[in-house]
């Protein structure tokens, strides 16, 4: 495990309030990229432009709508969009108690355990610190113009309650604001 992950775990264990962003995370770079696997694994603080540059060398792309390339991939994940979620294969996270956890992996088909890697897409940094994400990528030739996804807020109070309880699962001390 990298030193930065151990530091982050300590920071989280000792914190009462945290606001997560990529500067605070200070954890960036491509971890693994196998073009023939169509999979790239990156640290969450990596700029989208840096990932795109790496993929471009093999004529591959992140096959989801990208609004801005100068933000981190973790920020895009936290904001959430369905087409991004479709490409997520796995995440490593540090939860609100400082535990470093792994969900999903680097393979396209994986139905072991609940799909936490996709559950946390759109969690806006309020459930856990996402440190690492694996994505399915595609050859550029297969991806046409990608439409901007849209989303809307459901006003179902039962859903809001479920989301609140799920936050408690990952962040029982309620430190992520």
């Amino acid at each position: 495990m990298s030193n930065r992950i151990i530091q982050l775990q300590q920071l989280i264990k000792n914190a009462n309030h945290l606001h997560i962003n990529s500067e605070w995370l200070a954890y960036a770079g491509v971890i693994e990229y196998y073009p023939e696997e169509l999979v790239i694994t990156v640290k969450a603080g990596t700029k989208i432009s840096a990932i795109q540059a790496k993929l471009a060398k093999h004529n591959q792309v992140l096959p989801f709508f990208i609004k801005a390339t100068d933000i981190s991939i973790g920020a895009a994940y936290a904001k959430g969009a369905q087409d991004l979620s479709d490409c997520v294969l796995g995440v490593k996270i540090i939860d609100g108690t400082g535990e470093y956890l792994n969900f999903g992996g680097q393979v396209i088909k994986n139905v072991a355990g609940y799909d936490v890697a996709r559950l946390l897409v759109g969690s806006k940094g309020k459930l856990a610190v996402i440190t690492q994400i694996s994505f399915k990528v595609m050859p550029k030739a297969y991806i046409g113009k990608i439409k901007k996804p849209y989303s809307s807020k459901s006003d179902n109070p039962i859903l809001r309650e479920i989301e609140q309880k799920l936050k408690q699962v990952f962040d029982p001390r309620s430190i992520f604001k």
Partner: peptide, 9 residues
């Protein structure tokens, strides 16, 4: 198209 957590997934 729900905003929020990936409950459908």
């Amino acid at each position: 198209h729900d905003d929020g957590l990936g409950l459908l997934a």
